[in-house]
Nucleic acid binder design. Structure first.
Length: 262
DNA sequence: CTCGACTCCTGTTAGC
DNA sequence: TGCTAACAGGAGTCGA
């Protein structure tokens, strides 16, 4: 599913639309508009606007425009971006590889004949005008030990729940968090503030390294733990049966032998 | 404020 | 073969 890595791939794929002028806005699914936006409001804000740049904060993809409005796209679990007919990711984990017209939730047509579309079968993503970036935590791909310490110290929630919370640290999803904690040897259920400063420093480094490594490999689903994220699987390192739990509301796999217990 | 439970959504897949 | 029910997770809301 789209985590920071996939959204960055979308951002790169969308770079060609910078400088183009928006001629038409299709909002076939009004339900997909978030933050109280309506099809009319989106049209009024974007019609005739030029795309000034692309940006990304965590899983949020941003397009500032010449009208002063910034278009924000979220992809949920199954959202894909299609730019000029090309999809940078042809198949997402847990979703279909097809591009059905009925799944197009949002589309921009540009002055040069190109277009940008969001295709999202399960409708968990969304389109928002001027999304509030201030509510997002620091970017996960560059998170520092100091930033992570500040975030973890404030919470007694399970470590994994905090890492998944976009308001505290932005960009990590279920797969990246499981891979990161498995790599770092930390139990996802540990109370966040129970980590000592050494653990926090090490975890920050593992987060950054994991994002880099899986980006090179091509996605959040390319981790070493990923092949074992199913019932009855064994730890790929030590062959201990993995624990399967729900933590932070998400299916969580961890190795009871290698990831220190709470 | 924090935190967990609940809810939204629907294609895919496992199982009968 | 055809059907049903469980499953997947990003993110908002609500109550304690």
């Amino acid at each position: 599913m789209p985590e920071l890595i996939e959204v960055e791939m979308y951002r790169l794929a969308a770079e060609p639309v910078v400088g183009r002028t928006i001629l038409r806005i299709d909002t076939p699914d009004a339900w997909y508009l978030r933050g109280g936006a309506t099809p009319d409001a989106v049209r009024a804000a974007l019609d005739g606007a030029r795309v000034l740049a692309t940006a990304r904060h965590g899983k949020l993809l941003l397009f500032p425009t010449s009208h002063g409005t910034t278009l924000g796209l979220r992809f949920g679990m199954t959202g894909r971006l299609v730019v000029d007919g090309e999809a940078p990711i042809d198949r997402l984990e847990y979703s279909s590889g097809r591009v059905a017209e009925a799944w197009v939730r949002f589309r921009l047509a540009f002055d040069d004949g190109g277009e940008l579309a969001v295709v999202d079968p399960r409708r968990l993503g969304g389109v928002e005008l001027d999304p509030d970036r201030g509510r997002l935590g620091p970017e996960a791909s560059t998170v520092t030990a100091a930033q992570l310490r500040a975030v973890l110290q404030r919470s007694g929630a399970p470590l994994k729940a905090v890492l998944l919370d976009q308001h505290r640290i932005a960009g990590l999803g279920n797969l990246l968090v499981d891979e990161t904690l498995w790599t770092a040897g930390l139990d996802p259920a540990l109370p966040a503030r129970s980590l000592d400063p050494d653990d926090v420093g090490r975890l920050a480094a593992v987060i950054r390294a994991t994002v880099r490594r899986l980006s090179r490999r091509g996605g959040s689903h390319t981790g070493n733990l990923q092949p074992a994220r199913h019932r009855g699987a064994l730890c790929p390192r030590c062959a201990t049966p993995l624990l399967r739990r729900t933590i932070g509301g998400r299916t969580t796999y961890s190795c009871p032998a290698e990831q220190s217990a709470p």
